[in-house]
Amino acid sequence: GTEDLKEEAKKALKKGDKERAKRALKKAGLSEDQIKKFIKEVL
């Protein structure tokens, strides 16, 4: 589900894998702006 994808994105970001995080967030249905915001909040 969406929460799982967001968790996956957080883990990817902590490993420095932004591309993987972006893919997971796109799958979760987030827009580009939401993805940028999510990444900023996590990092």
Rank of each mutant, 00 (worst) to 15 (best):
T2W: 14
L25H: 00
L30S: 00
I39W: 05
V42A: 10
F38Y: 05
E7F: 07
D17Y: 07
L25M: 03
A21H: 00
A24R: 03
R23M: 10
F38N: 01
V42H: 13
K37S: 13
T2E: 12
G1K: 12
R20V: 07
A24M: 15
E19V: 08
K27T: 07
K18C: 13
G1S: 13
E8D: 06
G1F: 13
T2K: 10
F38C: 02
K14C: 10
E19H: 07
A21P: 00
K10N: 04
K6L: 15
A28T: 03
K14R: 13
L25S: 00
K6F: 15
K36H: 12
Q34E: 14
K26W: 06
L43G: 05
L43K: 05
K15W: 09
I35H: 00
L25N: 00
L43S: 06
R23C: 11
T2P: 12
I39C: 05
G1W: 14
Q34F: 05
K27S: 08
K36D: 15
F38W: 08
K27E: 12
D4V: 10
L43N: 05
K36L: 14
K14I: 13
K10S: 06
L13Y: 04
E7G: 06
K18T: 15
D4E: 12
K40G: 09
E7I: 08
G16A: 03
I39Y: 04
F38K: 01
L13P: 00
K14W: 12
D4P: 06
S31L: 04
L25A: 00
A12Y: 14
A24E: 05
K26D: 05
K27P: 00
A24Q: 06
K40Q: 14
L30I: 02
K15F: 10
G16V: 02
L25W: 01
R23Q: 14
E19D: 09
R23P: 00
E32Y: 08
G1A: 13
E3K: 09
R20K: 11
E3Q: 10
G16K: 03
R20W: 13
K36Q: 14
L5K: 03
L30A: 02
L30P: 00
A9W: 03
G29W: 01
L43W: 09
K11I: 13
K36N: 14
A21E: 00
D33P: 06
K15V: 14
R20S: 14
D17N: 07
G1P: 10
K22M: 15
K6D: 03
L13G: 01
K10T: 08
E7H: 07
A28N: 02
R23N: 10
